[in-house]
Design a protein around this nucleic acid. Structure first.
Length: 302
RNA sequence: GGAGCCAUAGCCAAGUGGUAAGGCAGUGGUCUGCAAAACCACCAUUCCCCAGUUCAAAUCUGGGUGGCUCCU
């Protein structure tokens, strides 16, 4: 069972409810909840819930470590194998579209991320401009270049990275792993949560207020005390980046809180845009109205 | 009671005779090892209202309405 949807839609609550109902365990597919010490701002389940319902792929790296989609897939695969071995249903709770897709469909067999090469290419982009890198990509991999916007530095760098490390264009690697034809790695039932837009935005605002009340600022202070701050990827997460800015005096607190809400709304929109195209998802507007008995019947039928 | 200034999208705002910049918000989208990231696109047939001048008005003139400031 895979639960997807935008931030603030109620994925976590539904996952817990479903786990309680079925005796299943939860595998998180969230690119920020992997970081230990980042609990409030990433909306992790409470300690009580975790004590009752086992959660996996949460708190698996320190905030100064890199996380990648491939690493996530490895960790999730292992967790799923363990839970399955115990004879329990697996509930994947995912907010990160790329991670969910990578888990279900796999990634093309390319080289792993190379921090050195990325640093080199990033420096090159800074000096000569992103357009220059794109021009190089046009030369070595015109197929990929046609699909990547000339301003999209991150994707241009990834494509060049793959080419340099393998001597083969990324588009060739990808053609061997076409998502439209690759068989799913797991038999999954996808449940999507998509509340009314206005209600979702309201929920997001309230959720941010609740995070502040719960001590998000203290959490950020603790991270800073340990030396974790931007530009660490983990510290650029929504709710953290803004409060680091506030702590550094770049914005006033009031504005930072507004920005957290705004950025969360933007993020929710991007998530919806990602999932909307997936025809396999069964959508529900109200997480509270999802019929657990129906879902359980489906799980039991496997 | 008098004088001055102002009125452009949900918000901020440029534009002083030649056919409505930009930013924010909003919306749609892209996504194959950084994804809570990165990137793309759309979004005022019209400038408070009415009349006038002009080939041409958001821009000039007159009147009205609303707001702000100052004087009495």
């Amino acid at each position: 069972m895979v639960i997807v949807g935008p931030t603030g839609a109620g994925k976590t609550r539904l996952a817990i409810r479903l786990a309680d109902h079925t005796g299943g365990e939860v595998v998180s597919a969230d690119s920020q909840q992997v970081y230990a010490g980042m609990d409030i701002g990433t909306g992790k389940v409470t300690r009580d819930d975790r004590a009752r319902v086992p959660h996996h792929v949460i708190d698996v790296v320190r905030p100064n470590e890199d996380m990648t989609a491939q690493r996530f897939v490895e960790l999730a695969d292992r967790a799923i194998a363990e839970v399955t071995a115990r004879g329990k249903p697996v509930i994947v709770c995912g907010g990160t579209g790329l991670y969910v897709r990578a888990l279900l469909l796999g990634l093309f067999s390319g080289p792993p991320a190379s921090p050195e090469l990325r640093a080199e290419l990033t420096e090159l982009a800074r000096q000569r401009g992103t357009a220059a890198l794109h021009a190089e990509l046009v030369r070595v991999d015109p197929v990929a270049a046609a699909k990547i916007d000339k301003n999209d530095g991150k994707r241009i760098i990834r494509a060049l990275e793959v080419f340099r490390m393998t001597g083969e264009p990324m588009s060739v690697h990808q053609a061997k792993h076409d998502h439209r034809s690759t068989p799913p790695r797991y038999p999954a039932r996808l449940v999507g949560l998509s509340p009314d837009r206005e209600a979702l935005y309201c929920a997001i605002d309230r959720r941010v207020d609740a995070m502040i009340e719960a001590g998000l600022e203290g959490e950020v202070a603790a991270l800073r005390a340990q030396g974790y701050r931007p530009p660490l990827r983990s510290q650029q997460a929504i709710g953290y980046a803004e409060l680091h800015d506030a702590a550094d005096g770049r914005v006033i607190r009031e504005r930072a809180l507004e920005l957290i809400k705004r950025n969360s709304r933007h993020y929710a929109r991007r998530q919806l845009s990602w999932y909307r195209t997936d025809k396999a998802i069964h959508w529900h507007a109200d997480p509270g109205a999802v019929d657990l008995v129906d879902l359980e019947r489906y799980l039991a039928g496997r």
